[in-house]
Design a protein around this nucleic acid. Structure first.
Lengths: 107, 107
DNA sequence: GTCCTTCATCGTCATTTAACGATATAGGCG
DNA sequence: CGCCTATATCGTTAAATGACGATGAAGGAC
């Protein structure tokens, strides 16, 4: 289901460490490898690698093999899609609240 | 931390059933009690109640005692906040990609 | 007061997650 | 070829999650 995918992406975002990782990637977006990320966090390399995997599986980041290093970049396409999906969701959720403030359809 | 809160809210959204619950609340936003939600889902009442609790704890919905019923409504304020926060996050994340396409600052 | 409905909470169980250390693989360098 | 570095994966463990049935408490209705 669509919801499954969206939920999976939201769940992937739903951890402070993973938010941090995304921010780290956003800041130094080029040539950011696992070791770089690990250096910014108080966690073991294997743990960081695991979090990276969650983000990878959710499609929120992409891997770029670079010699012996694996560099990661934000999957901006997917993030954009997700942004749209989330925008659509929140629009849907928030819609009834506004009670069609100025809906032109009313006679 | 701010991230803790945001992550918690995202995690609360990160389950298909909870997305469904939010949609259900959005559709028939008034007088929607636990039984109503349960009727829309193939889950036990206690399970639905648990999911509702997660959404409550994340502040995404609010409870309104109504006699023997507890009615739930979307916490639109919080959802709006979250929408902003998410927008801000995605803006931050997506920013480097656009490479300031038309930033006026450039001579 | 008694009964009935609604629902949150409790206890349980299986699954998943988060964290770690250890390890094996893959690629560059001498 | 042999070594080193980088990192993904494995195995483990504790804790969290998701699901359920049962139960107890709160609040009408008669």
């Amino acid at each position: 289901m669509q919801d499954e995918i969206l939920a999976n992406q939201l769940r992937a975002l739903g951890h402070p460490v993973r938010l941090s990782i995304l921010r780290i990637l956003a800041q130094r977006q080029s040539d950011c490898c696992c070791a770089d990320v690990t250096q910014c966090l108080p966690l073991a390399q294997s743990t960081v690698s695991q979090h990276i995997k969650v983000l990878l599986d959710a499609g929120l980041i992409a891997r770029q093999a670079r010699g012996t290093r694996n560099c990661y970049v934000l999957a901006t396409d997917r993030l954009n899609e997700m942004n749209s999906a989330f925008g659509g969701l929140s629009e849907l959720l928030l819609q009834p609240v506004e009670a069609k403030k100025d809906s032109a359809g009313v006679a």
